[in-house]
Design a protein around this nucleic acid. Structure first.
Length: 505
RNA sequence: GCGGGAAUAACUCAAUGGUAGAGUGUCACCUUCCCAAGGUGAUGGUUGCGGGUUCGAUCCCCGUUUCCCGCUCCA
């Protein structure tokens, strides 16, 4: 990881805080791990990202409808979906090397275990009574095992350890030792990635509920409700934007991996024999969506999952990856979930989620193609991708080159100087814009250059400037963020002009 | 969860075992007809938090929280 890349991330985190995009959660209390709050600019940006997604997936299509399911769902949902079982990883650590293993990945081993009760130093009074064991695999090499044990005690400040209380034990098919060095592993600890809480005032096992680790299940369990209410016929989709929660073992990289996050998911139900075509279709459609909203071609790619990488439900999966400063990372996964989920819920609930096929007169389970995107990840990617620094020294300019639809503020209304009625005129234009629900900003103080710079750093695509000529002929200038070019329009056509620019952007 | 590094004003950073400074920013007033101009003033910090050592700690020690890096994990 080069210094530059990390500098870029740090610079963006600082900019986000300074300009009000993203703050650390509960900062005055020292912060809360992996939790972030969106500030005034950040919330607009993220809303715009979600709106762009919703428009492209729902509003502009005849074949997709939306829902908003609750975060808490019946616990059996998570049994059926496989999350209750599959989301629990029993993990063990090597006491010597600290290397971590999944307990169920360790091959059973046989051999002789050497137990020690402790160690003392050969040249001082130092001693330690912590027990330790090493497995000497058949054919047993006891000297090597003892050497491992001495390393263990050396780590605990015994410089020249003499092992104490050695006993041996024959074992078969144990998984309690590190396959690489025979060293004892910790007890298995379960990491369930689902957040748990209690429904109602009594905290007992029967009231345990989970906060959803994905929004998809809310769609699957509502599949027939939605299909019947909206009279949809396959192929059709159900979309949802909402918060999900996962107790990630390692959160990090700013808002990239957090334990509370927002997903934009769509489940597209198709005839089983058409699954591969639709998979290709959504792969391309979703990839192009990022390009359409300004992500640079060289910073985005598709990466197919290897067979052994696939989730338990998936027949195929491809990631849309973005080149973050910390490396290529997933923005969105497009998966062929087959009929796994609908069948599971049908079996588990006893209520069939199959559709009746009028042609074949048979019940059938559609296959599901799922494009699942991270709203926070997409927001972060748009933020990073639009970040640009121009010029050097005094001419240096920081610009967020957002696609205009994503910009938190669309227009700033600025009087060139604070006199001759210019502030009043600028305020009138500002009010006009606001009355047309165009997100705008009025800035009167300080030099015009400074105010342009502030808007550049907020990613505002257009600045309206009221100058001397405005007072004579009623025209104002529109300044373009990316080129800094200016041209004049009649002040009473500003709203119309901006509206058309935003529509065509 | 392990190992390493860091934490001082809103941001970027200084400084010192004797209760902290600068630049930037922000605000007000003045000035200013086009890209972070200038002037004056103001705003700002229990030095992340909690203990300990000390006459005295931002500095030394311990713990803790958060962030970053590396493991590990990742539906």
């Amino acid at each position: 990881m080069s210094g530059n890349r990390q500098d870029k991330m740090a610079t963006i985190v600082a900019l986000c805080k300074r300009r009000g995009f993203i703050f650390q959660s509960s900062e005055i209390y020292g912060g809360l791990n992996s939790c972030w709050d969106y500030g005034p600019l950040g919330v607009e940006l993220k809303r715009n990202v979600k709106e762009a997604w919703w428009k492209s997936m729902v509003s502009s299509r005849r074949d997709i409808v939306g829902i908003d399911a609750s975060i808490l769902m019946h616990p059996k949902v998570w049994e059926a979906s496989g999350h209750l079982k599959g989301f629990t990883d029993p993990l063990v650590d090597c006491l010597l090397t600290k290397k971590r293993f999944r307990a169920d990945d360790i091959e059973p081993q046989s051999g002789t275990v050497l137990h020690f009760t402790g160690a003392k130093d050969r040249e001082s009074d130092a001693a330690i009574t912590e027990p330790y064991s090493v497995l000497a695999k058949t054919p047993a090499d006891f000297d090597k095992a003892r050497k491992t044990a001495r390393e263990f005690y050396q780590q605990r400040s015994i410089v020249k350890p003499e092992l104490l209380g050695e006993t041996t034990e024959e074992v078969e098919n144990t998984t309690g030792f590190n396959p690489e060095n025979g060293g004892k592993l910790t007890e298995a600890r379960n990491f369930n990635l689902m957040f748990r809480t209690f429904m109602g005032p009594v905290e007992d096992a029967s009231s345990t509920v989970y906060m959803r680790p994905e929004t998809a299940q809310g769609i699957f369990v509502n599949f027939l409700n939605v299909q019947q209410a909206s009279r949809m016929k396959i192929p059709f989709g159900i979309a949802q934007i909402g918060k999900s929660f996962r107790n990630e073992i390692t959160p990090g990289n700013f808002t990239y991996r957090t334990r509370e996050f927002e997903q934009m998911e769509m489940e597209y139900f198709v005839p089983p024999e058409e699954d591969e075509n639709w998979y290709e279709y959504w792969k391309n459609t979703r990839f192009n969506w990022y390009l359409e909203y300004g992500i640079k071609k060289e910073n985005i790619r598709l990466r197919d999952h290897e067979k052994n990488e696939l989730a338990h439900y998936a027949k195929a999966c491809v990631d849309v990856e973005y080149k973050f400063p910390f490396g290529w990372s997933e923005l969105e996964g497009i998966a062929n979930r087959t009929d796994f989920d609908l069948k599971q819920h049908s079996n588990s609930s006893g209520k069939s989620l199959a559709l009746f096929d009028e042609e074949t007169k048979e019940h059938m389970f559609p296959f599901v193609i799922e494009p699942a995107a991270g709203a926070d990840r997409a927001t972060l990617a748009f933020l990073i991708d639009s970040y640009d620094v121009e010029g050097e020294g005094k001419d240096k300019r920081t610009v967020l080159r957002f696609h205009p639809s994503l910009s938190p503020i669309k227009v700033a209304s600025l009087p060139l100087v604070k006199r001759d009625g210019m502030p009043e005129k600028a305020e009138k234009i500002y009010n006009d814009l606001l009355s047309h629900s165009i997100s705008s900003f009025l800035d009167i103080n300080l030099s015009i250059g400074r105010r342009y710079a502030r808007q550049d750093e907020a990613g505002t695509p257009y600045c309206i400037t009221v100058d001397g000529q405005t007072m004579e002929d009623g025209t104002v200038t529109i300044r373009e963020r990316d080129t800094r070019e200016q041209y004049r329009v009649a002040s009473d056509s500003v709203v119309e002009c901006i509206t058309s620019k935003l529509r065509n952007a």
